[in-house]
Amino acid sequence: MIVLRIYRLANWCYRHRIPLLPFVLKSFNRIIFAVVLPPSASVGRNVLFSYEGLGTVIHRRAVIGDNAIIGAGVTLGGRSGSEGVPVIGAGAIIGSGAKVIGAVRIGAYASIGANAVVLSDIPDFAVAVGVPAKVVRINRPEELPNYRAFERQ
């Protein structure tokens, strides 16, 4: 995934205080792939951005856990007057067009429906949909579908 490779290089440069290059790489991602993925954001291992992150906007301090799947057009952003930012748990799935706003924690292996607006915490293994998002189901760990089955091995 090209977007994440560029992000990882920008993040490495950012952490090592190399001037200008993180900004140039972030700008390249924004222009070519239409994704705002700042080098200061924390993105875990094996994260998947659908369609190379097309239309996705990530807050500069957001945290995305390992194995998360982020759909196209997702916004993980802050809230005016609040210092908190979204924290996405390991294995969480955020549907296309969803908005996660403010100091919100999405639990491990939780699923957020397409175009949902999440304004409050979502527990582990929960399924949340709607505007504002409401939990409609809590999955058992053995019921989780394998959304990565389509990837090449």
Rank of each mutant, 00 (worst) to 15 (best):
V47K: 11
A98H: 12
G53E: 08
F49D: 01
V43I: 13
I112L: 15
S96K: 03
G89W: 10
T56P: 03
S120Y: 03
T56G: 02
S120C: 08
G97P: 08
R45W: 13
I64D: 01
L76W: 04
G73K: 11
V63K: 14
V117C: 06
V74E: 00
G95H: 05
Y51K: 15
V104Q: 00
I58S: 03
G44L: 11
G53A: 08
A149E: 13
V118Y: 00
G53T: 05
V74A: 01
N115E: 10
S96Q: 08
S111E: 02
T56M: 13
P145D: 06
Y51N: 02
V104S: 08
R61E: 07
I69S: 14
P123C: 03
T75H: 02
N67I: 03
A126I: 08
E142M: 00
A72R: 04
T75D: 01
I138D: 00
V43W: 05
S111V: 13
V74D: 00
G95Y: 04
T56W: 15
I101C: 06
I122C: 00
G102R: 05
A126W: 03
I64A: 09
G107S: 11
A133N: 09
G44Q: 08
V85S: 13
I138M: 04
N139Q: 15
G102E: 10
I64T: 03
V131W: 01
R148V: 07
S120R: 11
V131C: 06
G71H: 08
S120P: 00
I112N: 01
D66M: 12
L144C: 02
G77C: 15
V87L: 14
S50A: 11
A72W: 12
A128D: 07
V131N: 15
R61T: 06
K99H: 01
I94W: 01
E142H: 06
I88E: 13
N139C: 06
T56I: 06
G84H: 13
V135E: 00
G81F: 05
A114F: 09
K134A: 13
I106Q: 00
G77W: 07
G107Y: 01
S82I: 11
T56D: 01
V43Q: 15
D121K: 14
A92N: 05
G71I: 09
I70V: 10
E52N: 06
G55P: 07
F150W: 09
I101Y: 05
V131E: 10
A90E: 10
V63D: 08
R137K: 14
I88L: 07
L54W: 14
G73L: 14
S50M: 04
F125S: 00
A72H: 12
S96W: 05
G53Y: 11
T75P: 02
A98S: 04
I112P: 02
S120T: 15
G71P: 05
R137E: 07
G53V: 08
Y51S: 15
G73R: 11
A114S: 15
E143I: 12
I122K: 06
V47M: 15
R105I: 12
G81V: 09
I88Y: 15
F125H: 09
V87W: 01
F125R: 03
G95M: 09
L119C: 04
I70F: 09
D124P: 10
G91R: 15
R45A: 10
V127A: 04
